[in-house]
Structures are given as structure tokens and as C-alpha cells.
Write a protein that binds this DNA or RNA. Sequence first.
DNA 1: GTGTCTGCAAATTATTTGCACGTTG
DNA 2: CAACGTGCAAATAATTTGCAGACAC
Lengths: 139, 139
Amino acid sequence: MKLDIIQKLKEHDLKVTPQRLTILDTLNRYGHASIDEIYKEVKKVHLSISLATVYKNITSLLQVKLIKELALNEAKSKYEIIKEPHSHLICKKCGSIEDINLSEQIEQNASKLASAKEFAAEETELNIYGLCKNCKQNN
Amino acid sequence: MKLDIIQKLKEHDLKVTPQRLTILDTLNRYGHASIDEIYKEVKKVHLSISLATVYKNITSLLQVKLIKELALNEAKSKYEIIKEPHSHLICKKCGSIEDINLSEQIEQNASKLASAKEFAAEETELNIYGLCKNCKQNN
DNA sequence: GTGTCTGCAAATTATTTGCACGTTG
DNA sequence: CAACGTGCAAATAATTTGCAGACAC
């Protein structure tokens, strides 16, 4: 599993440094994390890492599209490693994000909508906002 | 049409000031605009408006949910007035955003996905990334 | 009139950059 | 060893805040 990522890094001439791996590992474990969250996590392992390094890594990882930015209304942006699925259930109350897989039907319908506008669709992202199971109960 | 917005402002105890109306008008005309774009536009009408005022307005309009933030990978956030539809065709090349209406089918499928996770869906947002008609041709 | 809004300046926070040194391949 | 990455400090950019006067209601 790590090999996968290491390979992708090499493909894009990004060196495999411990800091970079820890950042990616953090994203893997968190699913989605903000710059601050990443910084705090990585710091547990690499005491002397700097915020600048986190930013530089996020920037280069975004450029080679190994990760993507998830910008949520009102909250700080979070980042996640790109892999299927690209879709989320986003809780308006607690801010949790759960990944979901798009059904074939949705994919197909989305393509239709796009081609109707002569738009060449490459990626489809569905975000559903509402209340997660927990918050729904404790409302 | 303006009455609609004015009413919403009043509902939320936001005063109807010329600056605020011009900001909303800009969003209406642009569809989606960044802070800078809004600032430059509003400045044409209100020569002495300050950036801080734009920020303050965006913040309060977000709070009362009259507008929403559209955060796009790599690009600056843009804002739009909330109204159906919530879905977009986003061009990766030129950054243009076109609104689309979700089909009934997609809405239904999305609800299914959500309820399978015991998630109470409130809003569904579909973003399709790719190349717009123009950029597709001049590729 | 009272409370909110505006514009300005200053403060704070977020992000980027330059550089010397260390590490990867 | 060449290219790239890191950590630090400093520079920029983005956003927020405080306050006095102006405006909406």
C-alpha cells in the first residue's frame, strides 16, 4: 500500500522523504485533515518540522494531483489523498466527513448533464450536506 | 426580484445598505465571484468602499446563508448567492463555472446513498470537473 | 435615537519566499 | 555530486478587529 504512494512520488520526481511520508500517512489516517492538523500530527514524529515544509509539501502534492483540496463552507480547507471515491457526506453540525461511492446511475446521469452542455467531464464529485447519524440522534 | 433579497436581509436583521446591495448585485451578475472581483466591481459604484467592508459583508451573508462559499481546488474561493441549483460544471482550464440543474434521478440516487448510511441529507451538490466547450475546442 | 454599517488603520493569521545546509537517488 | 527538500527567519498576502462617524429603520 505504501509502495503505491512511493511510486507515484517517484513518477513525479518528488523525493521520498520521511516528512513527506508522514504527511501522507497523516492524510491516510485522518481521511481529511487541515494544514494545522497535519502540522500537529507530523510534529509528533518530526519534532523540528516547520509549517513552511508542510505548506511546501501540500503545494507540491496538489500540483502532481496526489492530493486534493476540500473546501467546506465556513470551515477551513482540508486535504485528502486522491483516490476513488470523490464523494462525501458532510455533517453540518459536527463537521465530520464520510466518504461514499457513487453509484453507476449517478455517474451516468452526471455524464448526461455534462454532455448536454458540451462539457468534457473528467471527474464527478458529489457532496451531500446534512446531519450524520450521531448528530441526527442527539439533535 | 430585488424585493426577494431585501426581504431576506430584513428577516435576518441585516440592514439594507447600498454597499451590501451592490455586493449582492455583483454576485447576481457574476454568478460566482471572488473577494477581489467583488471588491473591484463594487468599487466602481462606491469609490470609497473598503476591503474590510466586503469581508464583513461576506461573513454576515454567509452566516445567514444568503450566500455560500465555493472552494475550488487550487483556485481562490468564490461566493455565490444561494438558490437552486447548487451544482456546477467547473472548467479545469479556464476556471469558468456553469450552473446546472440536477435531474430528479440524481437527487433520488443521492438520497438513497445518504440514507444507506443513516445520514439525514439536506442539500446535494454535484460538481463536475473537466473542460468546457471552449477549452475543449482550443485544446 | 439606537443599533448596525462603513471606512480607515492597525493587528492578527495564513501563506510564500530566500537561503544555508542536509538528504535522496 | 546534482537536484531537491528541510528548517528557519523574514516577507507577503489574506482576513479580522477596534473605533469614530454615518446611515438605516
